[in-house]
Simulated assay, not measured.
Amino acid sequence: MFAAIASGNPLQLSTEVPNSNGLQHTIILSSTKPKSYSHISLFILPNVTFPPEFAATVYFKLSPTEEFKLFGYLALEKPSAIFKVKLPAAGTISTNDYPDGLGEIDMDDDDEPSSGAIPSSNISELIIGISIEPREQAMLKLEEWKAKQQIEGSGSALIVSRPGQGNISTPGQLAKRYPQLTQQLAAKIVQHAYNYLTGFLDPEGNVSIKRFDSWWEKFRVRLENDGQFLDEVTKD
């Protein structure tokens, strides 16, 4: 009923899972070539008539021992979706990289990978779970998921970790695990604010607090849409 393609690899069909507590289909991506970004296309097969009163919620996990995490859905009006998966290289540890075991999956990301992307490891352990359920129930579940991400400040991307690594869900946890990377992030944010606000200095070198509020609103929106713009922030 479903199929997935990891960029640069063969198409892989879903397998029905009996007595699976709601997840009726799974796809295990194997023999996936290491890439800086691996784009996974998930879709309903062309010969399948998907009932309009149902939706297929999509889940991911990195190993059989983990729990599935919700990342999106497929339906009659949305027969396909593209997910961008980023997994760090095994054994790669530097001030500019994430240590092994931490990855990120973005929902429905059509952007091309950047030339400065972090090298990724083989994603052969990536498992996709698909649950077909009544549309109203599925949409409610997705709305709750989106609301939770907004509250937690993680936007449309969720962190997926290998067993034993643990997830990062607060700024303090991020700073503790990646102190130098956090410092670099803070410096980029401060520099971006400085670049913007210096355009509104009065003769005495002051800036209205309304200008700061305006910067923050624009910055927040842009960060949600494309956080990679911070890589381009430099001193004017």
Rank of each mutant, 00 (worst) to 15 (best):
Q173G: 03
D226T: 06
E53Y: 02
G91S: 05
L223A: 04
I127V: 15
G199I: 11
G101K: 03
N225K: 14
H192R: 12
I82H: 06
A56M: 02
F68E: 01
T49W: 01
E77A: 09
A193C: 12
L87N: 08
E204F: 14
W145S: 13
N122A: 13
N9T: 12
M107E: 14
L11V: 13
T92I: 07
I40W: 06
G8H: 03
E125N: 15
F43L: 11
T15F: 06
I105G: 02
M1S: 11
A147Y: 08
G155K: 00
D213M: 06
H192N: 15
A90G: 14
G172W: 04
L158N: 14
P113Q: 03
W145R: 13
V48K: 05
T65Y: 04
P171I: 04
S14R: 04
A4Y: 03
K146F: 11
T198R: 15
D100V: 15
Y194M: 13
A90H: 15
A157R: 08
E125R: 11
N96I: 15
F50D: 01
K86W: 09
G8N: 04
K235S: 15
A6S: 03
W145Q: 14
G101F: 08
V221R: 10
A6R: 01
T26K: 08
S169I: 13
T49V: 12
D213P: 09
S38M: 07
F54V: 03
P171H: 01
A90N: 15
F68A: 01
S169C: 02
G205Q: 06
D226A: 11
H39V: 00
S169E: 09
V221W: 04
